[in-house]
Write a protein that binds this DNA or RNA. Structure first.
Length: 495
RNA sequence: GGCGACGUGGCCGAGCGGUCAGGCGGGGGACUGCAAAUCCCCUUUACGGCGGUUCGAAUCCGCCCGUCGCCUCCA
């Protein structure tokens, strides 16, 4: 089945055909490391993390590059505020970024280049642009001449003349044309600077991605991604630089994720309406955030709220219960089969898997894919309910349920990165810097002991004691559920 | 002002020409000592408004109303 994705460049959903199959080259714009990442960054990171996993599932050999902008105005400003150098700030937030990524289960990219480690490559790009007549130097600054690049505006569908009308020009700048953008900024006192053919200075923002892509991926890549807010001017400027140099298409497909909003407004630092990833994953299991992101189509806006997190938590538990309860079902009395033939669940699994991937292939429709997963959950629950009501499970049912649970878990784990700590193949990674809540430090053996004591009380019909134990454990973050197959206990995932 | 999105049932959120979304919530019932989980039924003749195209439109076209994003750093 072919993959179809929306290409911002054409404004249409197109069939995805890599330049050199089975290789796929992807680049996404990473973060500027001047502060902690928030949910808006998280969404973009999660979306492309899952998309990459899906491409790998399709059999592509993916090379994924995601950069760090580790020198820029905001980093320098932050350093000045803290009376330190910009590199200290950048290093700190890169370290914190990695902690965030581990916690929200975003896999590292294959290459994660830093701007400060690519200064020679950036200078090379700028030199080529000057040679080709697309850039000019003024007093140590270098600007790209937008009017020289005839395709300017093709990504963001903007008209140069119209842009010109609304353009404003900073009085301090020396550009010849208001639309021109800085490739190289001459050094100001106290700011980081590197030697260049134009004197000491530092790179402008838009050139880094071009230089890094040329170095790590090549002149034409398959997919370039990022947040919708990067379309203009950042990505437009990248195209201008890269294509001015090579004369070849820079990226064949441009993918942009919708923005995260809060109360309908864009989540951003400047508005102060942001929620850091750290805040989210210390309150909720990381899967809940992932699921929240995947429950909305990647191109639509996603309005974040804690209420929605709470709703998503419930939805997550429904998914997880279905998988986990295979274990519980096993504890019921197992009877011999009374019916022959294959259990209907096998068909539902097949349908689920087919539809799940079909949805993802249709412009990466994760909400629709999830809907198919929940249909399987529903079918599994019916089987489970019947078994519970009867108080026994047939071998045939059990096998079908286990097969379904396995399919669901494997798919969710592999593609969506969910439930990674359920039946881990190796030791689960500890959530870094996750604050230990009371429920988390309770010893498993001690909980089991209390559950056992409570069940003795239940047998003796001393419900006061039984309920007391259940209530108190709940306060400590342990949830008890009595089922025909015994008492199930779990740690609370939520706040 | 220009460009681009979007407005779906109580809420969230897919679908984008004709048969299903899905999640969350609310009500009733089954099961249970109770709770939880799960199942069944209901909440559901949903698609911003007004016209038009069509045998048929939430889906296509036009106009209007409303919300948001980009146009400056931004995932």
């Amino acid at each position: 089945m072919s993959l179809r994705i929306y290409n911002t460049l054409s404004g249409k959903v197109e069939e995805f055909v890599p330049l050199n199959p089975p290789n796929v080259l992807i680049y996404t714009c990473g973060v500027t490391v001047y502060d902690d990442s928030h949910v808006g960054h998280g969404r973009s990171l999660i979306v492309f993390d899952v998309f990459r996993r899906f491409l790998e599932h399709l059999g592509y050999n993916v090379k994924f590059v995601r950069n760090f902008t580790d020198v820029d105005d905001k980093i320098i400003k932050r350093a000045q505020e803290e009376c330190t150098d910009f590199m200290t700030i950048a290093d700190r937030y890169i370290a914190r970024y990695y902690i965030d990524m581990e916690n929200i289960r975003v896999r590292p990219a294959d290459v994660e280049p830093r701007v400060t480690e690519h200064i020679p490559e950036i200078i090379e790009v700028i030199e080529k642009l000057i040679q080709k007549g697309y850039a000019y130097e003024v007093d140590g600054d270098v600007y790209f001449s937008v009017k020289k690049f005839k395709d300017y505006g093709k990504l963001s569908k903007r008209d140069v003349e119209e842009l010109l009308a609304g353009a404003r020009i900073e009085p301090s700048e020396k550009k010849k044309d208001p639309l021109d953008f800085a490739l190289w900024k001459s050094a100001k006192a106290g700011e980081p600077a590197w030697e260049s053919p134009w004197g000491k200075g530092r790179p402008g923002w838009h050139t880094e991605c071009v230089a890094m892509i040329f170095k790590h991926l090549g002149e034409t890549i398959d997919i370039h991604g990022g947040g919708l807010d990067l379309v203009f001017p950042h990505h437009e400027n990248e195209i201008a630089q890269a294509e001015a140099i090579t004369g070849k298409p820079f990226a064949r497909y441009w993918m942009h994720n919708g923005l995260v909003t809060v109360g309908g407004q864009k989540m951003s630092k400047s508005l102060g309406n942001y929620v850091t990833l750290r805040e989210v994953y210390t309150k909720y299991h990381p899967d809940v955030l992932r699921l929240l992101v995947l429950f909305t189509h990647y191109r639509s806006p996603l309005d974040f709220s804690w209420e929605k997190m709470e709703e998503t938590l419930k939805a997550y538990e429904r998914l997880k219960n279905a998988v986990e309860d295979a274990e519980l079902l096993k504890k019921l009395k197992i009877t011999e089969d009374t019916e022959g033939g294959t259990h209907p669940l096998y068909d539902h699994v097949k349908t689920f898997e087919e539809n799940f991937y079909a949805s993802l292939s249709d412009d990466f429709n994760t909400p629709e894919a999830l809907a198919h997963a929940y249909k399987l959950v529903s079918e599994m629950n019916k089987v489970r309910n019947q078994a519970y009501v009867r108080g026994n499970v047939s071998k045939r049912e059990l096998e079908a349920y286990e097969f379904s649970a396995k399919s669901l878990l494997n798919t969710m784990k592999k593609i969506f990165g969910l439930m990674e700590d359920l039946y881990p193949e190796c030791e689960p990674k500890k959530l870094v810097e996750k604050e230990l809540e009371p429920g988390r430090v309770l010893d498993t053996k001690l909980v089991e002991l209390l559950v056992e004591a409570r069940n003795i009380a239940r047998k003796e019909k001393v419900f006061k004691i039984a309920d007391f134990i259940r209530d108190k454990l709940k306060e400590l973050g342990i949830i008890l559920e009595d089922t025909p197959a015994g008492t199930k206990w779990k740690r609370k995932e939520g706040a």
